[in-house]
Amino acid sequence: MNAAPSAIRFDEVTLGYGRHPAVHHLSGEFPAGSLTAVVGPNGAGKSTLLKGIVGTLRPLEGHIRLHLPAQASVAYLPQAAEIDRTFPLSVYDLVSMGLWSRSGVLGGIGRGDRTRIEDALAAVGLTGFERRPIGTLSGGQMQRTLFARLLLQDAALILLDEPFTAIDAKTTADLLDLVRRWHTESRTVVAVLHDIDVVRRVFPETLLIARESVAWGTTAQVLSAENLLKARQMVEAYDPHASACHRSAA
């Protein structure tokens, strides 16, 4: 692809549930410092791909290799619906959990950390929301809160799963500024997205996926009419009696 060393490398990776593949024989790499959108129809395996990178889902076959600086962490923002918003916790407390890699289970949160938490809240425009219970936030405010936590995680690799779904234009624009900032700081960012316009405007690289990789490279080339049509025609093939796949794992 290009000369930069890879941050994530896939070798013939198949990810799935039970023995049924959701991502089928994927090979390729996300270069270090790249800003990549993952695009594809529903059921194309986009979220599954991120779970594979984070390590919550083991590949059925093949290898995913992360090449990160020794101390660096991975920050992962799953689809927001999976957070228990009824839990009595304040915005400040939720954001401060981004410091986990530094503070761990027992470490204290010092004065310097407090300044960083306040800075992160300011960066997402939530100054003054510190004491608000997370249950009282709107969808957009919740997403801002989670981005503040991502800021604090200070990770070399940032994975976002549909971060702007059901989020209004203003909030999306604000949060995209943070994504751009991460890119200029040479962090590797991989985001699952639906809005093709946002992808064209902000993301230099794109992986178009429909269970198998349809196209992977610079956004302008990947998002051709021809490729998009191909991805749309993906069969939602769940065959309960499928036979074993015999494609060679090179």
Partner: peptide
């Protein structure tokens, strides 16, 4: 609150 975050 956020078991997936904890796991990550």
């Amino acid at each position: 609150v956020d078991p997936i975050f904890l796991r990550s």
